[in-house]
Design a protein around this nucleic acid. Structure first.
Lengths: 242, 242
DNA sequence: CCCTTAGTGTAATGGTGATTACACTTAAGG
DNA sequence: CCTTAAGTGTAATCACCATTACACTAAGGG
């Protein structure tokens, strides 16, 4: 069809991912290659995957791959940055500010865990750290897309709660880090190394609630509380500022 | 050359069961190869290091290398397990039980950080996670030598303090994990990825104190005021509003 | 001095895999 | 239908590297 012929538009839509209606052959090829390559990199690792493997799985031809990505490294970079972008945005929940803090934190915590232990993220982390020596730039890309952004979101929330007198903090960033660490714990590292970590929604929820309890004991504005903060029972207490 | 008595080398060979006095040429060769290989694996990664590189650096010959380690993978395994063993034992300090808790925890925390951010450990972690797909057994070796042992040590200490009524915990293991995470934070991950993390003793000390404070707020047995802080920077935050 | 054993050097062998070259086939606009 | 450009398949090219083979040297005990 006589849809846009402009090559610039094409390049643009390639970058943006969506834009025009035309899957434009090239798009399709590109996607197929990236999908296949991602799968293989995840399964066997970057080093152990040959481009012939990729092509065999994606269909199409080696020549096209080179035409599109320039080199194996280029393909790798494209995939990692693409998947980093995917990680972003899972933290959005405009609703948290209107909910009781324990509930909101639990929600943030669950999102945090779900992002961090998703196959995609684990794969990215493994790739990035594995190839950190060959592709140092990617660590930066990952850092900005993941930890930095996620933590900023948490910090923003914590700061607001501090303003309301519900939390007591000297630095929202520091507290946000603590929060994230308490949530994540060793799940991140274990996932990367193929060691076990909590996987069922149930186990995760239980773990998150525990972590939230711990965090609130450390940062909740002091009322002399130590009584077991089973999550639901934790809510009422917040009414009295200090 | 240098066949003069090296007590350390001797102790090493004693470990292996061959208690005989000879540093035996072979020992020396073995050490030289492992040292060289370690350096290269750390610098360039396992995949990017060729055995010829190793031999070029260590002196000696490829044949001997094969005679001793059987294959590249064998050499890798030998190195990783050796360095895992090195990680163990840095946590020993029989003295902690007699000191104020904040001080003891700070000490544990410092040890923890120093083990975790040592070049050696970072290298091991990077190697293990990089090659997790090819050598899944190594993850286990690492886990038992590192996190498991370290945490057990911390848990033991915490348990005792709970018995004394200084801490309140439902599970010493859980609390120990929380402690370790608060200490380590993202230093571990960042180190692996080549991103920045606190390096100067001063920065580390400051960070550890902060983390210990946080931990004690969460797990210290509740009294109106936090148990006497023996460390500067550990002062209770209750007083300081913002 | 001879023999054995461990260690050395060098040069195959064999395989793998990134990258390129090239001749061929589509797709589709004009 | 013809032309052009993109996409395809296959087979080179070129390196690199683990692994092995082999002929050689050093050391030390007898």
């Amino acid at each position: 069809m006589g849809t846009t012929e402009c090559p610039i538009g094409k390049a643009f839509s390639a970058l943006k991912g969506l834009a025009h209606s035309k899957p434009s052959r090239r798009e399709a090829r590109r996607d197929a290659i990236m999908t296949a390559a991602t799968q293989l990199f995840v399964e066997k690792g970057y080093g152990a995957t040959s481009l012939n493997d990729v092509v065999r799985l994606s269909g199409g031809s080696l020549s096209t791959l080179y035409d599109m990505f320039g080199s194996k490294a280029g393909l790798f970079r494209a995939i990692v940055t693409q998947r980093c972008e995917m990680m972003t945005g899972t933290f959005e929940d405009p609703d948290i500010y209107s909910r009781p803090i324990a509930e909101a934190l639990s929600d943030l915590g669950m999102r945090c865990m779900s992002v961090l232990t998703s196959d995609n993220t684990v794969a990215v982390m493994r790739s990035v750290s594995s190839e950190a020596l060959q592709f140092p730039e990617l660590a930066q890309v990952f850092y900005e897309a993941g930890p930095l952004r996620g933590r900023a979101r948490v910090a923003g929330y914590l700061e607001e709660q501090a303003r309301r007198g519900i939390l007591t903090l000297d630095s929202a960033e520091e507290a946000a880090m603590d929060f994230c660490q308490l949530i994540i714990r060793d799940a991140q590292m274990n996932a990367m190394m193929g060691l076990p970590y909590p996987k069922t929604p149930d186990a995760i929820q239980r773990h998150v609630n525990r972590a939230v309890g711990c965090f609130l004991r450390a940062y909740g504005t002091a009322v002399q509380t130590q009584a077991a903060p089973a999550l639901p029972g934790l809510l009422p207490r917040m009414a009295t500022g200090r």
